[in-house]
Design a protein around this nucleic acid. Sequence first.
DNA 1: TCATTAAGTATGC
DNA 2: GCATACTTAATGA
Length: 231
Amino acid sequence: MPKLDESLLLDLPPFSLLERSQIREILNRAVSKRYEEGTAIFREGHDADRFYLLLDGYLRVVRSTPGGDQVIVLHISPGQLFGIAPALRRDTYPATSIAAAESIALSWPVSLWPEFVANYPGFATESYKTLGERLGQIQETLTEMATQAVEKRVACALLRMVNQSGRKSDAGIEIAFPVTRQNISEMTGTTLHTVSRLLSAWQKDGVVSSTRKHIVVTDPHRLVVLSGLQS
DNA sequence: TCATTAAGTATGC
DNA sequence: GCATACTTAATGA
C-alpha cells in the first residue's frame, strides 16, 4: 500500500480544522483501496462495518427496487465522506455505492466513529452538513421527478453531473466520469430509449456532444433553458 | 407525452 | 466476434 501523505486531507472540510499530528493519526488508521469502474464499495443492507472518504474518482449511489431495476440516488465526488451509516445511527448501509470511474477511497472501522466525533473539531458538524446537503438534493430531485416532464428531468440530471464533475474542454464542459444512457434513465425515471432520443436531438441542436459513455455539454446555457430553471 | 417492442448499427475488448 | 452501447421507427396507452 502506498504511503499516505498528510496533504491528502489537509484541505478537506471534515479535517480542515485539525492539527497536522491529528491528520497523521487519522491517516495511520485509514485503509486505502482502489476500485475498478463498476465495482461495489459496499452494498445496500449489508453490515456497515466501515465509513469512507472518496479521494479520487466518482461513485454512483444506487438503490434497487423490488422489481430489480435500480435507481441512481446521487453521485459522490472526491473529498466527500460516504457510507457514514453511524451518523444516521444505522448498522446497515442504506444504499449501494458503485465506482462510476476508477476510484480511490480511504476507510475506517465504524468503531472509530465516536472517537472521531469526540476528538476532531469540525468533523461532526461537517458530516451532518454533508448529510443535510444530500437530503436536500434528494428532495429536490424527488419533487422534480413528480412535477417535471421527462425532457426537463434529463436536462437537470445532466446539469447536476456537470456542476459536480464538469471539466472545461475545448468543445465545452465535459462530465468527468463515464455515463451511459441507461445510467441517465436510472437517474430520471425514464427509459434509455427516451434518453437516447433526447441526446440525439440535443446533439443535432448543438447543445451536447456525446460518444459512448462520454458527454460534453457544448451549450450549457441552452441546457439550463431546457431544464426550465431560472438563473 | 412517453413507454414498449423490435430491429437495427457502432464500438471496444 | 461477441457483448455492450447506442439509434431509430412503429405502435399504442
